[in-house]
Amino acid sequence: MKQVGLFLLCWSMLLACNNNNIQQRNQVLGLRQMSDLATAEYIITKIIRANDNKTWYKWGDRKILMSCRASVKAGIDLSQLKAEDFQITGKKITLLLPPAKLISLNIPPENINIEYEEVGLFRSTFKTGERDALAAQAEAQIRNSADSLGILTTAKENAELFIRSFLMRAGYKEVVFSSNSPTTPALN
């Protein structure tokens, strides 16, 4: 009886050691209600080039060349529209739109490809985490220079185009956009 108990204890401990099931939380991290009208999307490409030869005690170099294709979306936040931004005179409406902003940056995993990899005799290949860290640097570079691509100007123009057609369909004969403040490159 004692031996059976000991066996069961060992068996349950063995099972506990091999238990590598993943338990997901039921709740999501957060939910945010928004009012963003995305009006422009740019599909961009970038080459990720890195050379791992800075650490003096590691023999040999590692070089990697990756390419990535990302989507950047921009538009306006409709929640920023206030009553004073609208001036209505008969069938004419004048609007002051909020500045355009970046809404999202998306680099899908399938759009990141290794083009070339060169690994020295005494070095190991780039692991998943290392490749992700390099791609994350590219992501930061894209994020920082997204506004210089001119997407905010395009987003503003497209927003005006859409709102004009929407309001004209709703019965207005003339839709005028008054000059607004400069675009902001804020990304959620």
Binding site: L31, L37, A50, Q141, L149
Partner: peptide, 24 residues
């Protein structure tokens, strides 16, 4: 290991009319 600052190329521009109302 830091990556080189390579240029960003615009491949395509699309017009959207998406109202993003909820983000999880």
């Amino acid at each position: 290991v830091t990556i080189d600052n390579t240029p960003i190329l615009i491949e395509e521009m699309r017009e959207l009319r998406n109202l993003v109302s909820v983000t999880i």
